[in-house]
Amino acid sequence: MRTNWQPTPDDLNLFLRWLDQDAENAATRYESIRRNLISIFNRRGCHCSEDLADETFNRVMRRLPKMIDTYVGEPSRYIVVVARNLHLEYVQQVEKQEPLPEHDHTDLSVNAPDESKEHEFGCLEHCLKQLPHQQRKLVVGYYHEDKRAKIDHRKQMADELGIGLNALRIRAHRIRASLEDCLKQCLR
């Protein structure tokens, strides 16, 4: 999948200038696009998303000197096209290889032994304690499926907080993200 070609400092500088004329902004943009490419490859089920993101950048850098003067539009458009072509190559290569053993998708904590469940519960309790009380209350309420329909429950929560449903959803997502980070650390 990876080519042997590696960018020189000049190739990298040209690429960064293409992303943004300001060096600092360009570096920030580079990192952000790389992160987002990794997420896209992950979501497509790739096993080596970081490598694929770097290879995408390498291929763009390699072609950039020839097309920079004539290319019109956002760099992201071109980068995505290169990434998508690379993904097709990746899929073809994976298909040629021996198939990996199927994962047992049910074996993800639901059927975990009691000991492990206790550990999970302990971690969750520990991580919830790290949150301020209001956030704790919100996340437990948001994901707690009461007897009432979930949607009604969330609507009531939003009303109580004086915010819209989408704002509540965003709040819950941000709290959940920090809770998940803590859980990952604790369960490691």
């Binding site: 639901v110 996340v139 994901y143 990952k184």
Partner: peptide, 14 residues
């Protein structure tokens, strides 16, 4: 998915 299941399972018991 594992984290989601932990949250779903334990938060429901919370």
């Amino acid at each position: 998915l594992q984290l989601s299941r932990i949250l779903k399972h334990h938060l429901n018991n919370f």
